[in-house]
Structure formats: structure tokens, C-alpha cells
């Protein structure tokens, strides 16, 4: 691999847990971290990012995603037996909405959300305004509305209105990754699971990805 810089940035962005599951596949590397079975983040590095890439056997190992590179350093990372990775995706659940957004603009919206809030409500609808993010503070309510005609929205598809609630601290976990990414795909499945796929473009035109699965908050009713 030419430079570890981009990889380091990507790993930093998903480093909210001590341990990651490292999975080497013939297509590329995948590192996964989980937070309390609610958020799952993966960094995916396609094989073409590496100048040399060989996978001998398909084993899962576990290691700490710390400083990974250095020019002439042999970095030995002790591995542990991998825990099984939670399969958050439900094959039966269909996708109800898919949005493609500019990562920087989406980050700008998230930064503006009130810090004291715990819950974020995401409303998606085929009607105007297509996206609205509502946060409930101590006494106040604030609402951000984005129509699909907005510059930051590169594609929008949503057949029927959905309203989902997420833990705001969970949403905040993606902010670091958003900061280094160029584009984000946001998918909602019918069971409420939010999937964010972020694309990171490197200087050499190659791409790396990160992926976040976020479990929704269920209403009390």
C-alpha cells in the first residue's frame, strides 16, 4: 500500500470502540466495530487500494485499530479470537427510502443539532418538505427541513412517508467519517434500520468506504 494516511483517517473515523473485527476477503479488507448492539460501523478498503494484496485463508481476527502505519515500522498487532459480528441486516425488510447526499452539507446539518438533545426524529416523505429532522430539547423543539430540490441532495427516492427516531449520540458517531467523506448514501429499511454508506475518495482516485448501521428507537405505543 502506498500511503497509510487515508486508511488511518478512515480507521480513526470508526474508532469508537477498543476492538474491531478484522476480515480479509478476496475483494478487500473490512474492519467492523460495534457499539452496544445498536450501532455497527465498518470500514471497507477495496483490494485495489493495495499495491500488493494476498489473502490466504478466510479467517476473522480481532485487533485494536490503532496507529496503523509508519514508513519503516513493523507493526505487530496482537490478535484475539473474533467475536461473531452482529447481523443487523434483515433480509426480509425492504428498503423504504434511499437518499444520496453531499457529505459536507449533511455534516453541516448534524453539527447544528442541539447538543443537549438525546433523540432525533427523521421524517422522510415523498411530499414537500421531503426530509425533516426534528430534535426535542429541554423545552424547545427545532426542525430542519430539506427539500429534494436542494443542492445537497443528489438523489431522493421515497415511496411513502416514514418517521423514525434515533439516538442522537449514535448519529453523532458518523460525524468523523462524514468529515473525510465526499458522499453519503442513506437507506432506511422497513424495520427502521438506518444504513449509511460513506464514500471516501483518495487523491489517487481510488475509493474507500465506511458503513454504519444504526438501530432505531421504538415508540412506546
Amino acid at each position: 500500500m502506498d500511503s497509510g494516511k487515508a486508511l488511518y483517517g478512515l480507521l480513526k473515523a470508526i474508532q469508537f470502540q477498543e476492538c474491531a473485527v478484522f476480515c480479509a476477503m478476496s475483494e478487500g479488507l473490512k474492519l467492523t466495530v460495534e457499539e452496544g448492539k445498536c450501532v455497527q460501523a465498518s470500514a471497507y478498503v477495496p483490494a485495489d487500494n493495495f499495491t500488493e494484496y494476498h489473502v490466504r485463508e478466510d479467517v476473522d481476527v480481532m485487533f485494536k485499530p490503532q496507529s496503523v502505519h509508519n514508513v519503516m515500522t513493523d507493526c505487530e498487532i496482537s490478535t484475539q479470537t473474533a467475536d461473531s459480528v452482529l447481523e443487523l441486516r434483515d433480509e426480509d425488510a425492504s428498503e423504504v427510502a434511499k437518499l444520496v447526499l453531499k457529505a459536507s452539507a449533511f455534516l453541516g446539518l448534524l453539527v447544528d443539532l442541539e447538543r443537549s438533545c438525546d433523540v432525533m426524529e427523521l421524517n422522510l416523505s415523498p411530499d414537500h418538505p421531503n426530509v425533516s429532522i426534528v430534535t426535542y430539547g429541554m423545552q424547545d423543539r427545532s426542525c430542519i427541513e430539506v427539500p429534494k430540490s436542494s443542492d445537497m441532495m443528489q438523489s431522493f427516492s421515497c415511496e411513502q412517508a416514514v418517521s423514525l427516531k434515533y439516538q442522537l449520540p449514535h448519529i453523532r458517531l458518523i460525524m468523523k467519517a462524514l468529515a473525510i467523506s465526499s458522499k453519503v448514501v442513506l437507506r432506511c429499511s422497513s424495520n427502521g434500520l438506518l444504513l449509511l454508506q460513506l464514500k471516501l475518495e483518495k487523491d489517487d482516485q481510488r475509493q474507500m468506504f465506511s458503513e454504519f448501521h444504526i438501530v432505531p428507537l421504538l415508540d412506546d405505543y
Binding site: 423543539r141 430542519i144 427541513e145 430539506v146 436542494s150 445537497m152
Partner: peptide, 8 residues
């Protein structure tokens, strides 16, 4: 970008 932020 057509974004509307409303604070109640």
C-alpha cells in the same frame, strides 16, 4: 440549499 430550520 433550500434548507429551512425552524426553532420553536
Amino acid at each position: 440549499h433550500g434548507i429551512v430550520k425552524t426553532y420553536y
